[in-house]
Write a protein that binds this DNA or RNA. Structure first.
Lengths: 130, 130
DNA sequence: CACCTGTTATACTATGTATATAACAGGTGG
DNA sequence: CCACCTGTTATATACATAGTATAACAGGTG
């Protein structure tokens, strides 16, 4: 999967890397069991340091998106446990996001449409690859 | 409005402050024209430095949530211009958020219900205060 | 004139980010 | 056994950001 980093962004590189991999999983561009490039290889491809990639992998492992096989390396393995905890985190982040949306004059319907559109988008990528 | 800061959070204090004020506006606990405590007073109340509050106010001013009257100080003034830009920012953030939700096994309907519930919550606080 | 506002400047400490170099344990294949 | 690949750990350095501290300034109020 192609990873693109915005080096002028104010978001940390390792964070952008995490986000893009999670995005890849959501859109099925990365499927369960798929092996990720090694920390050194990924670092070379992107043009960053090995430790920055390792930090991203470590976080993804802690958050239950990745596991490590000593033979092959890091691979996608989504842990769907802790649904309640995930929902609680979603709720908190969503509350901040929707507060800003509401202040900006964005209506409930506009946000509902946005959610639907993004889910459509993710489902669409799924079907293309089946 | 009561401000509560989690000093053990990994989120910056000024960021938490911004979020809570935006949340206050969305729930109408802060209404248009309402004067905010001065940077020194707010700093004393929370128990942080004046400059940390000033940073939050400056950001809120730049993002169009606050204006400054040289006579009274900072007050709420929501700028609803740049709806398109706001929607674009929402879309990008929502895409990351929903990707994580989807990976966690949270369905489209669950997220739609969450959005509805939070909007209900905000509207509810509104009506209580009218 | 005293007192309030936001704002600015400077300095310092602490933390987080990203880099660089190096080494280690576990596993694979020649 | 040995070269080579994995992730992992350790150490050091450079830099940016966050937060604090002290101080001063311009504008407005009473």
């Amino acid at each position: 999967m192609l990873i693109e980093i915005d080096f002028s962004s104010d978001e940390a590189i390792y964070q952008q890397l995490c986000d893009q991999i999670i995005l890849g999983i959501a859109t099925s561009r990365l499927v369960d069991g798929e092996v990720l490039p090694s920390v050194r290889q990924m670092a070379d491809e992107i043009g960053i340091n090995m430790h920055t990639v390792n930090k991203a992998y470590t976080i993804l492992r802690q958050e239950g998106f990745v596991k490590v096989d000593r033979r092959r390396g890091a691979f996608i393995s989504v842990d769907e446990k802790n649904r309640e905890r995930a929902l609680a985190i979603m709720e908190k982040e969503m509350r901040v996001l929707l507060a800003e949306a509401r202040c900006r004059g964005l209506s409930r319907n506009e946000m509902l449409l946005l959610v639907n559109r993004i889910y459509d988008e993710y489902d669409g990528v799924n079907k293309e690859q089946l």
